[in-house]
Amino acid sequence: MQALFAYGFLQRALLAGVFIAVACAVLGVFLVLRKDAMIGHGLAHIAFAGVALGLFLNLLPLAAALAVAVASSLAIVKLKDRAGLHGDTAIGIFSSLGMAIGILLASMARSLNVELMSYLFGDVLAIEPLEVWLSIGLAATVLITVRLNYDQFLFVTFDRESARAAGIKVSRLDALLMVLAAVTIVLGMKVVGILLVAALIVIPAAAGLQVATSFGRAVAASAVIAVAAVAGGLALSLALNVPASAAIVVLCFAVFAALFLIKKRGRVPPGAA
């Protein structure tokens, strides 16, 4: 573990990873409880098109992915609201289109393929200083925005109709949550890659929900699990010479499985209290 602090590239990976892990986990609790967990996969596929576009046009790939993912997240919300499509259908349409555009751009410019691979599978150990600051800044923005709207997000997640009856602008909050999810996905893909970023949103949240008796504790537990998985994954990656992204996700799952089993053994039937 001491080696994590010995090298500059590891310090950068740990710093960015911790911030991104907390943002993913906090947002993940809301998304999992809203049954919107698949938005992580969908927006990651969409972000793939953004990365390919950025590389194709010689722009910063993270910035291009961010613009494409945010615009698409808003389009998904509009499609759900206005066209009356189910959420998973709207996500399916945009994620397939995003993947298709990414593949088209990659095939048009063959030199992109190597760099695209680093986004597909994540390469947190190769994170640049600029990307570290960008990641910290955006993750902090996500966390502050969630904090400011925490109570409203909680109300809408728990009881959408009553929240509307209390005068809360539910559609506006939906759009805000989707934008935050898009930003978080783009950040997370540098850590664990496009193919695994949804795991960083879903698994720590699902694990935290196994042990929490209040919403605040679920959020805190998810954040702790995500940070531990990122730090542990980096350490494992270094010790065993395995990809950091895979190690992080496998650790997340191990924690989830352990908490799931503990809860199952000590489960109290609902309504018994």
């Binding site: 409880l33 109570d151 409203q152 909680l154 109300f155 728990f158 009881d159 109709e161 009553s162 929240a163 009856a165 209390a166 005068g167 809360i168 929900l209 929490a212 008796t213 209040s214 919403f215 605040g216 504790r217 679920a218 609902p270 309504g271």
Partner: peptide, 29 residues
């Protein structure tokens, strides 16, 4: 205005909200 919607008690048994959190939500109104 207070409102208790239809099927309000069809709560996800694993939603991790405490009773205080649930009641406090309405103060956002």
């Amino acid at each position: 205005i207070g409102y208790v919607p239809q099927k309000a008690t069809h709560v996800d048994p694993y939603f991790p909200a405490s009773v205080e959190e649930v009641v406090g939500m309405a103060l956002l109104a």
